[in-house]
Design a protein around this nucleic acid. Sequence first.
DNA 1: CTACCAATGAAAATGAATTTCACTGGATCG
DNA 2: CGATCCAGTGAAATTCATTTTCATTGGTAG
Lengths: 287, 287
Amino acid sequence: MDLFHALSDEGGRLSSLEAKLAQFALENVDFVVNSSIIELAERAGVSPPTVTRFCRRLGCQGYSDFKVQLAKMAYIGLRYLKPEAPTATAEEVAHDIISKAQNALFEVHRQLDLAVIEKAAQMLRAADFIQAFGASGNSAMIVNELHNRLFRLGCHINASNDHNMNLMISAAAQPGTVIFGSSYTGRDMGLVHCLELLRQRAIPTIVMTQNGSPVATAADLVIAIEMPEGKNIFRPTSTRYAYLAAIDILANMVAYADRNRAFKSLRSIKEELVRNRDGDDRQLLGD
Amino acid sequence: MDLFHALSDEGGRLSSLEAKLAQFALENVDFVVNSSIIELAERAGVSPPTVTRFCRRLGCQGYSDFKVQLAKMAYIGLRYLKPEAPTATAEEVAHDIISKAQNALFEVHRQLDLAVIEKAAQMLRAADFIQAFGASGNSAMIVNELHNRLFRLGCHINASNDHNMNLMISAAAQPGTVIFGSSYTGRDMGLVHCLELLRQRAIPTIVMTQNGSPVATAADLVIAIEMPEGKNIFRPTSTRYAYLAAIDILANMVAYADRNRAFKSLRSIKEELVRNRDGDDRQLLGD
DNA sequence: CTACCAATGAAAATGAATTTCACTGGATCG
DNA sequence: CGATCCAGTGAAATTCATTTTCATTGGTAG
């Protein structure tokens, strides 16, 4: 299933020649994918049976299956291994940003604890009112997005990125309110203060952040996302894609938690939009 | 190279059995990818040699190569064909959202005209002031994101999603100002009015939208993005990922257009953040 | 009507992948 | 310290998948 991690050999389960093969495969995906077992064996300096055993140990059916899996994987997930080359041309920048974003999506899919997402969706669904806190541009985008997705479903939600305001909101929150917080780093101390206050007041909190961070510790339910950070300061982090996907999944689960309400709400928005625009039904909910 | 299009057989180059095979392959990628030529032949009701010939006609080396190509393709681009099955479990939702997002990234990478991006980057770089207009949640997110990326680079930029305000801003814009607009549908008539006004006033405009749409027609430079739309009303469109990636690439090109300025600006932001937070240098620019 | 050609499958031939088996070197146990 | 075992490995044999060859069919053009 997860060939990439098998190839990375974190558990050290591979023998020395197998590790050599793994490294060779990671570095020469294209070659491997287009070669016969004999060519690969020769090039990597091992015998064909060793290659077959290697494939089996990785959880594949055999060599052909390995090639297929590798080809599937090649598009995603692989580039983490390659050192971050400073890029300059538009082609390079585009390629780099796209593949990092895809990696981030791949990673978040692997990491997301769906049981936690479902729990969070239930809490949000059941809430009388949702307050979404996130600051600093990135998390602000995330909570705005949550607002954008949830108000359509008929949820009562407010998004805010003003720390002082958040503190007042936290102090005034009524039972029935659920607070959602986002922080990539988990070190948004303004958010931590709010969460502590909310815990004292027994208002339930959900956060999307790094596990083990101050924000995570201060919250009731943690949607944990850990992303490796790039080194290129000119480049925004690809973590945003991961968070955005997590929000999408969460919002979708909220919708499914009460399809009827969501459907009715979406439908009236749609009708109103169609009436007010040019009557073209193909349009999106939101531009 | 482009197996997907070959399989779609637009030119009708395939014989009847081959067309049958193509359809079967598109509908049963997983089966094909995991089967031998004999199993496939049997299941599709043809003989193995026909399968081999079919693979060759599609531009592959042979059957194994075909499987590899198909596996590569399967992750991307293919799901567009499948009717959108209503999904319900968290696993299905997560998988579907992630793969759609990855498809969107793949597509935008394929479509983006990098020459246009570079042109836009030059214009934004040279501008005294940038106004970014986008409404309806999705495009609002995009222009906020552009703001978030460009202010860091030392650009003077304002993002706005208030149509009346945008109209006033357009009427008041000075030479040296560049307007950036975003609209997924290209039918944001408020934006079109602004663009028309700006054209009269000879203020340069850049838009990110669908080619051929009213918004595109009314603008000077068009960053064209066309995304197929999903049918699931509960699901937000994956177009956001494509737009976000395009913004990332654009912002990065702006940064590279004047590295020194960008570096100095980023550096002072970073210093200030480090001073004001807990001195941990690993933190991001923005949370 | 005949000859040709494209499409197809059966059978043979090829060649790749896997299994078997034997060997090696290092670890373990008495 | 030596005997034994075992994991790891490759050579050779085997199996099996793939491809090629060739014959057949059905349709089409002259």
